[in-house]
Simulated assay, not measured.
Amino acid sequence: MFKFKGIKSSAMFVKCVDEDFKGKSARNYIETSAEGYDGSTIDLLGYQNYSSSLEIILFKPSMLDDVLAWLDGSGKFEYEGRITKAHFLESVSTENKFDRVIMIKTNFVRSPFWYNAYDPKVKVSNFIRNDGNVYAKPLIEMYGQENETVKLTINDISLSYTFDETKGVVIDCAELTETMNGISKSKNLKLDGYSYPILYPGINKVFIEGNADVYVTRKDAWL
């Protein structure tokens, strides 16, 4: 069973023939060859999206219009306690089987990483543990007093934030944004080296200079 756009597959009376949702995405890379040298050097970049086919059995033919509308566009995709973003962008074929069920075939694309679907907010002290198997780009919440400047260092990446009257900020290390109540707080943030923190699998060291409560979500990521 899976969930897409907040709707369970069972609620749509469908079941996958083969739930082929998991799989490792390909890496992007730059390969460089030089005259006189054997082989080449590989510089690793980020991950590509993951693509696969999907075959579904619809047990209630009268739901076909609803299912076709459901499997269209982009949305959150949940499977076995993990969540990602999926896109159903291609054509969908259907085949009626004895007027009792309908076979639906299509393709989907999903983001390269899975995250914890039941993502708890964790208060940060001196370390953060990424329980996944690939680096995570967390969501960081910081709360402090007005005019207070706090420096947060995660591994070897540091940022400084000066609180204003809202006394808080949400830093999205994937989207590279810093907001509070939907308002940009970029002018209050200073990045050392212009990089946002990432969390490697296992233990990540944290150091907080100043008085602030720091929380993270989206700290665990899987391929």
Score class of each variant (00 low, 15 high):
Trp114His: 12
Gly210His: 07
Leu152Thr: 00
Asn126Met: 03
Leu71Ile: 09
Leu152Ile: 01
Glu35Ile: 10
Glu141Ser: 10
Met1Lys: 02
Ser40Lys: 15
Ala11Glu: 12
Ser91Phe: 09
Asp213Phe: 07
Glu209Cys: 02
Arg27Val: 03
His87Gly: 00
Phe127Asp: 10
Asp99Asn: 15
Leu58Ser: 10
Met1Pro: 10
Ser186Trp: 00
Trp114Asp: 13
Phe113Thr: 13
Ile183Leu: 08
Gly36His: 08
Pro61Phe: 06
Glu209Thr: 04
Tyr118Ala: 09
Thr166Arg: 14
Val109Gln: 13
Tyr118Gln: 07
Arg100Tyr: 11
Ile157Gly: 08
Val214Arg: 02
Asp131Met: 04
Phe21Met: 01
Gly81Met: 00
Tyr161Asp: 01
Ile140Thr: 09
Gln48Cys: 01
Phe163Asp: 02
Glu165Ser: 14
Asn49Lys: 15
Gly36Trp: 11
Arg110Gln: 08
Ser160Tyr: 04
Val169Met: 05
Lys123Asp: 10
Ala86Glu: 01
Glu90Ile: 03
Ala11Tyr: 05
Ile57Ala: 05
Ile30Leu: 05
Tyr135Thr: 08
Glu141Asn: 12
Ile57Met: 08
Asn204Val: 04
Gly36Glu: 09
Pro138Val: 05
Ile83Asn: 00
Pro201Phe: 05
Ile183Glu: 11
Glu146Arg: 01
Pro201Gln: 01
Asn126Trp: 04
Asn49Phe: 06
Met180Asn: 14
Thr179Ile: 09
Lys24Gln: 11
Asp119Pro: 05
Tyr143Gln: 02
Ser184Pro: 11
